[in-house]
Amino acid sequence: MDKDIIGWREWVELPELGLGKIKAKIDTGARSSSIHAYDIEEFERDSETWVRFAIHPDQHSDENVISCEARVKDYRSITDSGGHKTMRYIIETQFKIGKDTFLAELSLFNRSTMLFRMLIGRTALKGRYVVDPARSYCLSTSPEIAASE
């Protein structure tokens, strides 16, 4: 089976969270995927643990705020690229990249000091794509281009 080629950055939608296109870094060095989330608040719904959180989806801007809720799949220790461990909420949600929609795990973490608000790790990519680090936006177009079509 041939796999689609994905670039080192792509536009990703998270429809279950009400998020349109967000610029994501494709990172095969990271096992898990992560999104910039803050004001994370745990609550209970139907005897399950949920979280309410806010996201700044736009790179280099804190103006746009999206409020989200999701069921917690796990709460686990994640080691970042510098070897630091932090406990993070893990949710499972739909990722939409180009024509593909699939479920994948996403850790909630304050990424305000990082260039990309979202990082897609190898677990979400496994079996789906071949990454070409010399290319960008192979499967997706920017929101501005999509709006003008």
Rank of each mutant, 00 (worst) to 15 (best):
I78H: 06
L119Y: 03
Y38K: 01
P133G: 14
L17F: 08
T141C: 04
E149V: 11
D74E: 09
L119E: 02
E92Y: 09
D58A: 13
D100I: 04
L125S: 12
A30V: 04
S107T: 14
T86H: 15
V130R: 10
I145M: 07
E10V: 04
G20V: 03
I35Q: 07
A104Q: 12
S32V: 12
D2L: 04
E41V: 00
I90P: 08
T123G: 03
L139D: 10
C68P: 04
I5K: 14
L108S: 10
S112H: 13
F95L: 03
A70N: 06
M118S: 01
D100W: 11
K3A: 06
A146T: 07
T123W: 04
D58F: 12
S107V: 04
E63L: 03
I91W: 10
L119Q: 02
E41N: 00
N64T: 14
D27I: 04
Y129R: 09
G127P: 06
M114F: 12
Y89A: 01
D62R: 15
R88A: 09
L115M: 15
R135V: 10
K96N: 05
D2Y: 08
T93V: 12
I120W: 09
S32L: 03
L125P: 04
K3M: 12
L115T: 14
S112V: 14
T79S: 11
E10R: 01
M114S: 12
P133W: 03
W50R: 00
S34P: 09
W8C: 14
I78M: 12
A30L: 00
G29A: 02
K99M: 05
Y137T: 04
R135L: 12
L108F: 04
K25Q: 02
E48M: 05
E48R: 11
L119N: 05
G127I: 14
V72Y: 10
Y137V: 08
I5W: 07
P15M: 08
V12R: 08
D39I: 03
I6D: 12
D80R: 09
A104L: 11
Y89R: 00
R88C: 15
T28W: 03
E44C: 03
V131E: 06
E149D: 11
E16N: 06
E42M: 06
S47P: 05
E10H: 05
M118Y: 09
W11I: 05
E63W: 07
R135P: 05
L125D: 12
I55M: 02
K73P: 08
P15E: 05
D4I: 08
A124I: 05
E69D: 02
E44S: 07
S140I: 03
A146D: 10
T93Q: 04
